[in-house]
Nucleic acid binder design. Structure first.
Lengths: 197, 197, 197, 197
DNA sequence: AATGAATGAGACTTCATTCAT
DNA sequence: TATGAATGAAGTCTCATTCAT
C-alpha cells in the first residue's frame, strides 16, 4: 500500500502515540516496553520504527503532547482582555485542568508528572518542559501586570515574581489531585478565595 | 553483640541507599542499574542483596528518605504555637526547602520529583508519598485554623481547603526551581506577599 | 517490443549491480542492506525485487562481475602465441590488475577479496570463483608449457604445478596491495626478476 | 563461584573464542550469530558478554588468533642463521601452512581469508592484519638479503621488493588450496623449483 | 557473611521480503 | 510494472538476581 498521504502518516503517528500513551499511563515511561507499544498500536515492530526512530523519540512525543495541554490554557483561558482578577483566572485554569484530566484517552496530568521526572534526566524532555512552562508563565506575568494596573495587587512587586506564584498553583493542584486525591477545582478555589487578596 | 550488628546493618543500609541515591540523582530510578548501585556502594552484589531483597526495595527506601525530608518541616518549621501568619509560615517553608536542596549529598527535591512519578505506578511509593503528604497537609490545616481564629483569613472556609492551597505552594516552588530554574525563596516570597491577604 | 524490453532489463540489472557494488565496496557483502542498495539504485524495493529474486542473487551477481575481471586477462594478456617468458607474462598481468583496480566505479579487487571469503560459505559463489580461477590457471598452464618447450624453465616439472605458482602471484599481489599497500607492478616485477629464472 | 583465578578467565575466553571460531569456520563472521556462539560455548549470554564487550570484539579476537598463526613461521621456520635458499624457505613455509591447516580445531587459513575480507571494512582487523603481515614480510626481507649476500639472487634488487614476491606466495597458496583445492606443498614446491633461480 | 561469575528472560532494534494499490 | 508501507522473525545486548565457593 504505497503512496500514502501525509494525513495517513499523521494518523499513524497519532495511533502509535495514543497506544504508547495508554501504556505509559499504566506503567510509566520506563516500564513500558516497545513490545507493549507495538501490541497496543496494532502495528508491527517495523511499522512503528518506520514512524519513530527509537523509543526515546516516542517518549519525547508523548511528553510533548502532554505538556502541550497547557497550550489550551493560552488559547482558551488566559486570553481575555481587560482587567482580570487573579482568583478568577486561577479558577478557570483549575477547572480547565480538571476537565482535560477527565477527557477520554487518559488523564494527561499523569503523563505530565512522568514528564517532570523524565525532564530531570533527559535533555530533550527538559527542553520541551522548560519551553512550555516558560511560555505559560509569561501569560501569568501578563495577568499579574493587569492586576497591578487595576490595583488588585501591589504594584511594587515584580510581576515575574507574582507569576511564579500564580503558575505554582498548577503543579500544586495537579500533584495533590493525583497523590492525595481529594482536591477539586471547587475546594481549591474556596481555599484560594480565603487566602488571596 | 546484637547491638553492634544491628548498628552495622543500619550503617550498611545507609551506605547502599546513599550510593543508590547518587545514581538516581543522575539517571533516575529506572536507568539506574543494580550494577551501578553495587559499584557506587563499593560492596559486592551479594552484600547488597543481603540488605535489600530487590531493587524495588532500594527504590522504596530512597523514595521514603527523600519524601521524609518534609518531616523536618514538621519538626522545625511548623511547630510554633500561637498566631502565625500563613505568609510567614510559607516563607519559612520555602527557605527550608531551598536549604535542604543545597545540602551535600545531592538535591533531595530531584529525588522527590522522581518519587512523584514513581508513585503513579508503584503502590508502595504511592503509599509512602500519600502518607507523608497527608501528614504535612494536616499541619497546614492547623496553620489555617489559627489564621482563621485570629482573623487573618476568612473563617467561613473549610480549613482543609485552605490547607490544600498552602500545601500546593510546595510542589509549585520545587518544580519551577528544577525545570525553569529562576525561582528562589526571595522571589517567591515577594510574589506571595503581593497576592496573599 | 521484446528487444527493447530485454535491453531495458539488462540496463536495470546493471544499474542495480552498480549500486550494490558501491555499497559492498564500503561495507562488505553482509553489512550492505537491501535498503542501502535500493537507495543507491534510485529504484523502489519492488523494482529491485523485480530484477533479482533475493539479496543472495545480487551478491552472486556482484561476485561474478568482480571475478570476471580475470576474463580480460584471457582476452588481452595471455593470448600471445609463440614463446613467452613467464616473467613478462606476469608483468603484463600485474599491470593489468593495477589498471583495472584504478578504473572508475571502484577497486574491483576489493570485491574480489570479499568474494573469496564469501565463497567459503556460499556454494554459488564458490562455484563461480572456482570456475573462473580454474580457467585462468589453465591459461597459465599453457604459458608454462610454452616456457618449457623453449627451454626457459625445467621441462621435467608438471606444467600444472608451474601454473599453480604463476597463478599464485595474482592473489599475493592483490592482497598486499590492499592490506599492506606498498606494492606496485614495478616493485613486484623487480622482485620477480630477481627471483625467477 | 566467585574469586576466580586469572587462568580461569583465560580459559573461559579461550572457550568462547574456540566456540566462535568453529561457528565462523562454517558460516563466516557475519552469518555467525551471538546465539550460535553462546550455544557452542555452552555458556549463557551474560557470561559471554562478561568476557567480550561485543560481537565485534569476538570477531577481532578470532581474526587476531588466525592471523597470529604466521607468528609460528617466525619462531620455527624463518629463524635459521646462515645462508638460506629462498626455495627452501618457501618449502618449509608451505609445509608449515599445510600442517597448521590440518590441526584439530579447524582450518585456520579459512579464518584467515575471512579476516582479509573483514579487514577491508573493519579498521581494527585491518590494523591486526597489516601489523602481522608487515612483520612477516620483514622476515622475508631478511631472507632476501641473505640470498643476495651469498649470490643466490641478484644483489641489485631492493630486498623489500624481493620480500613482496616471497611473501606473496603465501596467500597464493592458501587461496588456491581453499578455492581450487588441488595444491599441496609438494606440487607447489615442484612448481617453485621449476621457476625460481 | 561475603563474593562476583553466571544466568537467561527479555529489552530494543533491524532488515529481507511481500503485496495492496 | 512500479511503489513503498508494512511485516515479523531474528539479531545484539542488558541486567536483576542467584548461588557455589
Amino acid at each position: 500500500m504505497p503512496k500514502v498521504t501525509e494525513e495517513h502518516r499523521i494518523a499513524r503517528r497519532a495511533q502509535i502515540v495514543a497506544a504508547a500513551r495508554s501504556c505509559v499511563l499504566e506503567q510509566g515511561f520506563h516500564k513500558t516496553t516497545m513490545a507493549d507499544v507495538i501490541a497496543a498500536s496494532e502495528l508491527s515492530a517495523g511499522a512503528v520504527y518506520g514512524y519513530f526512530k527509537s523509543k526515546e523519540e516516542i517518549v519525547a512525543a508523548i511528553a510533548e503532547e502532554a505538556l502541550s495541554a497547557v497550550d489550551e490554557l493560552f488559547e482558551k483561558v488566559l486570553v481575555t482582555d481587560g482587567p482580570v482578577h487573579p482568583a478568577m483566572v486561577l479558577e478557570r485554569v483549575l477547572n480547565h485542568i480538571a476537565e482535560i484530566a477527565d477527557r477520554p484517552g487518559g488523564d494527561v496530568t499523569r503523563i505530565g508528572v512522568q514528564a517532570w521526572a523524565e525532564a530531570l534526566r533527559n535533555p530533550v524532555v527538559m527542553e520541551i518542559a522548560g519551553g512550555k512552562y516558560r511560555m505559560l508563565r509569561t501569560r501569568f506575568t501578563e495577568v499579574a501586570r493587569r492586576a497591578q494596573s487595576d490595583g488588585t495587587i501591589d504594584a511594587g512587586v515584580d510581576p515575574e515574581h507574582v507569576a511564579q506564584v500564580l503558575f505554582g498553583f498548577v503543579p500544586g493542584f495537579i500533584l495533590q489531585r493525583l497523590i492525595i486525591g481529594d482536591v477539586s477545582p471547587e475546594t481549591y478555589t474556596a481555599g484560594l478565595r480565603a487566602i488571596l487578596r
